[in-house]
Design a binder for these strands. Structure first.
Length: 551
RNA sequence: UGGGGGAUCGUCUAACGGUAGGACCGCGGACUCUGACUCCGCUAGUCUAGGUUCGAAUCCUAGUCCCCCAGCCA
């Protein structure tokens, strides 16, 4: 009996593991996260990571990080490195349990000979096209290979010569001898080994034959004594083969595969093939482009790992295919950041304001609260002067009924500063408002009127003389529709306005912001300093804006 | 009339024969030196048709719709 099992989380995988512990089937769970190092991890992987590492954590077991590196033509060291970085960033730790399927190549090779020796596998000389043609269709059975009944000795000899490198790519393959008429196509004599004269990131040129997924995965699980092999739904049809191999090999343990639905999100593509394409064809600026759903991209955008995990939890784990609204993700990010992020003021679309009754040469420093949600965050000084910038959207010459902000003759509060009243809007030749002439009430210093009068709006601002310039990158959804690719190629659904660059004016404290720390620009959203040279901020997510919605 | 899965508010998800609940979205309202946050309220669901049962989202039968599989990818 396990000492203590955590409260049920309400999803079937946790219940499954808990049940196996309670029944005594296992003493503690062993799971694994098994990415192929052929790309960067994305938010879909975060779900698999959360499930596998989360179960290990909650039930006091362990989770292995295992690279499923059985296809050298697609895999690179860069991806091996980035995957480890990203899993750590999410807050998980595999301890000493870092493994590679390639660690088991010798063992797997031996098991392949074992299968051959028992008549359960054979070398097929058919071409890839012939194998495909003879596999049959979804409704028609396949045809047995003419090489299917070779002798054990001949098969063994051929397999050893495959390993020695006597044959070029594609000459022949090792196949399991199962059932060419099976309704499950994975059981129609699946290919187990293929010839690949390719350099492997870890084993180099030691091998020229490589096991495929099916021949590597279950056995690797068994070698590592994995108890629960949790994978996504599309592997469901592989389970009979997974079990067949465990049945026919002298494996050290008996792992059990269970499948869950992978994560889908509106306005998002989570197919490695397409993500690779976006990077390769420069539709984005790299794997860590903040518009990408990669963990590297989300991190660079300023999304905190705990918010990401929270989202994964809220989206839930089930066996039904679903598409989660990206709004739920945004909500998780905002909820976390509202508590955690320090507040600053920055103006994205500056409109000059001159306080006519404020002395030309004067300036002063005003106290501003760093985080109203967190008193321990303290306060800072913000410089104020005669010339300021406010947001263009905060002024309207002819305001509609519910517009609370600045317009000719109205009074508003500049946050932490003074009440100001707009006296005049100065226009250029084109008739555009380029400057506001205002007056301030010195008695309202700090933001409150001694006479108790109220204003309907409080606006952010920066002092023109003290402002620092910054490039702010505003990210919009990468796609124009919630189901990109539904009509074919997702490239045609790419949002041409997914990146907006603005030259912003920021309060001076922001000049020394830390790269990677997400901050709030009051009334605008959350922003994170980029590592690019100069002062560059990425918008993580905007604040909710119920006023904009009424427009 | 190949095999394997799945259907619960608009979207995710809970319920394990006993009051269909939560979150997100949306819509109201209160509060507010962020039109943010917070708080309160509202809207809204068991794929269909039968059956078993005192009682069905849950069990049975028959349908319907959706997803996955025909790589020497994973």
């Amino acid at each position: 009996m396990p000492a203590a099992t955590p409260a049920a989380t309400g999803n079937f995988l946790w219940s499954l593991v808990e049940g196996d512990l309670v029944s005594g089937k296992h003493k503690s769970p062993v799971t694994r996260f098994p990415p192929e190092p052929n790309g960067y991890l994305h938010i879909g992987h975060a779900k698999a990571i959360y499930i596998n590492f989360g179960i290990a954590q909650d039930f006091k077991g362990r989770c292995h990080l295992r690279f499923d590196d059985t296809n050298p033509v697609k895999e690179e060291q860069e991806f091996i490195d980035s995957i480890q970085r990203d899993v750590r960033w999410l807050g998980f730790d595999w301890g000493t349990h870092l493994y590679y399927a390639s660690d088991y190549f010798e063992k797997l090779y031996g098991w392949a000979e074992h299968l051959i020796s028992n008549g359960h596998a054979y070398i097929d000389d058919q071409t890839a096209e012939e194998i495909s043609a003879n596999r049959g269709t979804l409704t028609a059975p396949g045809k047995e290979s003419p090489f299917r009944s070779r002798s054990v000795d001949e098969n063994l000899d051929l397999f050893r010569r495959m390993r020695k490198g006597e044959f070029p790519n594609g000459t022949c393959v090792l196949r399991a001898r199962i059932d060419m008429a099976s309704g499950n196509i994975n059981l129609r004599d699946p290919v187990l080994y293929r010839i690949l004269h390719a350099h492997h990131p870890r084993t180099g040129d030691a091998w020229c034959i490589y096991p495929n997924y099916d021949f590597a995965h279950g056995q690797s699980d068994s070698i590592e004594h994995v108890t629960h092999s949790l994978c996504s739904l599309e592997f469901e049809d592989h389970k009979p083969l997974y079990n067949w191999l465990l049945d026919h090999l002298p494996v050290p343990s008996r792992p059990e595969q269970t499948e869950f639905a992978r994560l889908n999100i509106t306005y998002t593509i989570l197919s490695k093939r397409h993500l690779t394409q976006f990077v390769r064809d420069k539709h984005v600026r790299g794997w860590d482009d903040p518009r990408m759903p990669t963990l590297a991209g989300l991190r660079r955008r300023g999304v905190p790992a705990p918010a990401l995990i929270d989202f994964i939890k809220r989206a839930g784990v089930a066996r039904a295919n679903s598409v989660v609204d990206i709004a739920m993700f945004d909500a998780c990010v905002r909820e976390y950041l509202n508590k955690a992020a320090s507040r600053y003021m920055g103006v994205l679309k500056p409109l000059k304001v001159v306080i006519e009754n404020y002395p030309e040469v004067q300036s002063e420093e005003l106290d501003a609260v760093n985080n109203p949600e967190d008193p321990s965050a303290g306060s800072r000084k913000v410089p104020f002067g005669r010339e300021l910038y406010i947001e263009q959207d905060d002024f309207m010459e002819n305001p509609p009924k519910k517009f609370f902000r600045l317009s000719p003759g109205t009074e508003v509060r500049l946050r932490y500063a003074y009440f100001i009243t707009c006296r005049e809007a100065v226009k250029n030749a084109a008739g555009e408002v380029v400057e506001l002439r205002c007056t301030y009430d010195p008695a309202t210093k700090g933001g409150n009127a001694p006479d108790g009068r109220k204003v309907k709006a409080t606006m952010h601002w920066v002092s023109a003389a003290h402002a620092v310039n910054a490039e702010v990158r505003i990210y919009n959804p990468l796609f124009t529709r919630p189901d990109p690719g539904a009509d074919g190629d997702p490239v045609q659904d790419l949002n041409p306005a997914s990146l907006e660059l603005v030259e912003a004016k920021l309060e001076p404290a922001l000049a020394t912001a830390n790269v990677g720390e997400t901050l709030q620009f009051e009334r605008l959203g959350y922003f994170c300093r980029d590592a690019d040279p100069g002062l560059v901020f990425n918008r993580t997510v905007g604040l909710r804006d119920t006023y904009a919605k009424t427009q």
